[in-house]
C-alpha cells in the first residue's frame, strides 16, 4: 500500500516554507522515526520523519521548493 506523506501542519501556524535538505532518495528504505526531509519556515526548522516502515517510491518536491500546508511531499510503499 502506498502512503502519501503530506505537509499537514507547520510549527507556530506557519503556512508556507521551503524544502531544505532531503535526507533520502527514491528506492531508499525508511524506518518509523527516521528523518525524511526538513521544511524551513520563517518560524523555524521542522524535521519531517517517517511514520511507517517502507520504501520511498516518489518525491513530489525538490530541495529549495516552496511548499504550503496540505502539499504532498513524497510517497512511501508500506512494508508488509
Amino acid at each position: 500500500m502506498t502512503t502519501k506523506v503530506m505537509l499537514d501542519k507547520m510549527e507556530k501556524n506557519a503556512k508556507t516554507g521551503r524544502v531544505g535538505k532531503i535526507a533520502k532518495a527514491v528506492g531508499d528504505t525508511v524506518k518509523r522515526g527516521e528523518k525524511l526531509l526538513q521544511v524551513e519556515s520563517a518560524k523555524g526548522n521542522t524535521i519531517i520523519k517517517s511514520k511507517i516502515n517502507g520504501t520511498i517510491t516518489a518525491f513530489s518536491v525538490t530541495e529549495g521548493a516552496r511548499v504550503k500546508v496540505g502539499d504532498e511531499l513524497l510517497e512511501i510503499e508500506k512494508a508488509e
Binding site: 510549527e11 507556530k12 518560524k43 523555524g44 526548522n45 521542522t46 524535521i47 520523519k49
Partner: peptide
C-alpha cells in the same frame, strides 16, 4: 534568533 522543532521538544 532561530528555532528548531523536534517531535516532543523544541528549542529557541
Amino acid at each position: 534568533n532561530a528555532y528548531y522543532f523536534g517531535d516532543d521538544s523544541s528549542y529557541h
